[in-house]
Amino acid sequence: MITNAILQHALLAGTFIAIACGLVGWFAVLRVQVFAADALSHFAFTGAIVGLALGLDARLGLFVFTIACAMLLAALGGRAHIDDLAIGIAITWVLGLGVLALGFFATSSAGSGGASAANTLFGSILGLDAVHAQFAAFIAIGVSMLMLVIARPLLFSSLDPGAARARGVPVVLLGVLFLLALGGVAAEATQAVGALLLLGLVAAPAGAAHRLTTHAYRGMMLSAGIGVFAVWVGLWIANAFPNIPPSTAITAVAAAIFVCAGAPTSVRRWARRTDDGQSTATDNPSPKIDVPSARYRPM
């Protein structure tokens, strides 16, 4: 299976994108910014079409547009928290621009707008050549490194922005950096594996990791690991059953892990309820994240 060149490229790109998505996704879930990831993948979609409509390279348009939108979201959000509503309004408007660009594009170049739109939306991890796969892996490694470098202060500023600011942690800057990482992943993953797979790889492994452990670094590693596992198993399934698209298989595996990760808690809660016959008063109330050490030194 590994001897197949197409699969090799898919494994190379998929593995590193899954690691980056897992790390970024863990923080996205912690900071309640999964919607922002979704929005950025939509922006990437629009960026590709705008790039094509302007006669530029689709990838260039996509990267520039997505990063610009990430900055815009950061500006809109201001402080640590981005409002759901701001993202929703940004999505509608940017997609409206995308429609306009798609109109131009369809009229300008004998219009296969729909087909290329579908390609951008769903990507194809099995359609990568060696250069694209290596490029995707490089970007993903870069984003992962960035996340690992800022992990500690970002963790502090996500959990307690007030205290972090008082200790001199650059909370706003970290928020912007995080959105940039999110934008980088979204731009890269959208063109390499499709917008659809991005959301699955950001939301599912991270959600499962948050369900399984409250330990911060263990959670991050678990999230990346689950992502990689989902990609490998999904690619194997897609290879064994040619009818199933790889992105569907990968998303399905990730979703199954998310659902299974909720099972222990549900069983425990159910057992407790049948034990003492009363409602569960001791459900953990808030995101309880064990910070490795209580001491924190500013950067």
Partner: peptide
């Protein structure tokens, strides 16, 4: 956060 992960 988990809720938004579920929706995503």
């Amino acid at each position: 956060g988990l809720q938004s992960a579920r929706i995503g």
